[in-house]
Simulated assay, not measured.
Amino acid sequence: MKFRRSQLVLALAAGLCLSAGALAQNTTASAPVTSGSARPASASKYKLNAAQLAEAQARVQLANTIAQNVAADAKAKSLGDDWRTNLLGTLYNTPSSALSGMSTSISTLDQALSQANAAQQQAAAAKVSASTSAAGHASSAEDTTEALGSSSYDLVFTPMTPCRWIDTRVTGGAIGSTARVYDTYYGGGTYGGSSSCVLPGAGEPAIAVNVTIASPTAAGFLTVRSYGSTGITSWVNWYQFGANVQAANAGVISTAVNSSTSHYDFEVLTGGGGTAQVILDYFGYFSAAPATALNCTTGTQQNYSVAANFSGYHFIDTTCPSGYTAVATFCWNENNANIVSNGSGLIAFPWCGWRNLSTTTAYEVHENVSCCQVP
């Protein structure tokens, strides 16, 4: 029997998450607050590489610039405080290439929303077109990676209806120079926010938030950083205002896994002296793009007669439907012809091994392949 070599390049998507910042909280935590099905206690999510982190940071900076540019228009329209978080949720899901042009040309909220939505639709259409093209001629990773999810471009942002997760005025009290750790596994009810304000799973590697400080006792700044970090950076700065002011800033917090809980945590602390109340609202999170699910089927079943006293292997010469490629072999029988082994995973050498213990009777056996394609 002959055999045919087949090759399939299956590019699976990896999406990204992103940016910088971090806060800290105390570690007193009650039972986790969940909504819906139970969430896993362990964290096994995607970790950003340097290129992905840089892309996320660029997207956040551009989005904040656009929000700043349209603030006067929002004020003139007498909009509520949530216009900013709603706009940022849209902008964070818009390609950086589009945001770059918008950051220098947009002055009204309506323009920002309209152009961001149009850019998202164009990006989605381009991805579908590229993926469809790649599925028909998959021959290299370069052919399909961009269509399915780039490791340096595609941030996957999931917007949330803005919700309050931390309010130290309710729980925990004002934050000072000692880092306070916050565990993103828990719902907002643990930290003075809403019990329904919950992230999926054991939290996320990066979260989009609006952070507000209130009632500072002295001029200073707020540091928000990944769990375990020793860096001191300014997320909100109120040096120019002094004490007893309120200031806010939106951005993305990059979290880190707490080895003792396997949850994603971050830290918050103040600098410059004094304490401040901290209010934090979620409006989305970044996470890895799910792997592209393959379309799979089976090939044409091949029946083969194993001769009496036969011991050896047999090359499979079966075919997959048009557009599919064999990715594994499988063999079975209904009598005493034993399967010795098979060539699953050895796509360039598909075979089944057989042993017929009968000295007089040949038995029919069956061989086939699993066939898959990128949708």
Rank of each mutant, 00 (worst) to 15 (best):
L222I: 14
S139M: 07
F266T: 02
N249S: 13
G203V: 11
A248Y: 02
A248E: 04
A174D: 00
G172S: 11
T184K: 02
E142P: 00
T158Q: 14
S177P: 00
G220A: 07
C163K: 07
G149N: 12
G173A: 04
L222A: 12
N258T: 12
V245C: 15
T230I: 02
G271D: 03
G228M: 07
I232H: 06
Y239Q: 09
G193R: 06
Y227M: 12
L222M: 12
D154H: 13
A202G: 12
D143T: 14
S150R: 14
V211F: 05
M160R: 05
T212I: 02
S260M: 13
Y153M: 04
T190G: 03
G273Q: 13
A179C: 00
A243N: 11
A256I: 04
E204Q: 15
T223V: 12
T145P: 00
Y264V: 06
Q240D: 15
D183G: 05
V257C: 03
A250G: 11
Y264P: 00
R164V: 08
D143W: 02
V181N: 13
T178I: 01
S259T: 14
R164H: 03
G201F: 13
A243H: 08
S150V: 11
L269N: 12
P162Q: 11
C163W: 02
G273E: 13
